[in-house]
Design a protein around this nucleic acid. Sequence first.
DNA 1: TTCCAGGTGCATA
DNA 2: TATGCACATGGA
Length: 270
Amino acid sequence: MQNKIVISKKEINFVQTLECGQIFSYKKHSDFFEIFSADKYAKVVEKSDCFEVLCDDKKYWENFFDLQTDYEEIKSQLQKFDILEKPIEYGNGIRILRQDVFEIIISFVVSANNNIKRITKTLFELRKRFGKNMGSYFAFPTLSELEKITETDLIEIGTGYRAKQIIKLLGQLKSINLEDMKKLETLELRNRLIELSGIGPKVADCILLFGFSRTDVFPVDTWIEKVYNDFFLSLKNRIEIRKNLVKKFGNLSGYAQQYLFYYKRENKII
DNA sequence: TTCCAGGTGCATA
DNA sequence: TATGCACATGGA
């Protein structure tokens, strides 16, 4: 905790960034945030003119917050789309975090057909039962730490019927090198992810966006389906919706998705 | 009580 | 290739 990163308030809004659905491992307190990623920890304190991030690993967290990306440029590109005008204004300080790939894979498999409150509870319980005790918190368990986890364990922490899929997935991941996967093109990587248990088109897109920092994907979930049907034509086929949105937003799809998801979930009407 | 949640997997035609 | 249904579980 001896390291400090100072971030201008112009660069990020932590409430928006943490609550826009991309991360489950954080805690909001009255005057600070705690963020957990893999085995790392950061405490974010708001000052009058900036945020101070007190952390264990400065390099890790600087990369995590993606501070080198120019969001003003991204927003100016996206603002020309009518559908994004209000969402960008509303979620102006959102940043897409560069999270740990293994944690993101497990987290978003748990997220399928689930609600954020229960997902969060399950993932913290997974840390507590199987992750390394870091003193004031528990690390996200590694693949080898999850070697002995059983279907019963997973059901106990609230994964429901997804337990079977997760057991199978953990087995599949043993023969996959996630670092090598980072070298693949988005489409190839997406196809490889979809082959895995518990990962379909939507979860794959979330893993690509939040874990592999690929912004040329558009995760379509129940909320995006609602937004799409509100603003465009009524369409139930998520594959079609995704195709249309990726075509529209191209390499900025992932950013567009976050603004829309956050806006819709906060009960705003476009 | 019923519906819904950051869907996926599988059977059927 | 496309469609329909089952799948845990807790909150609204």
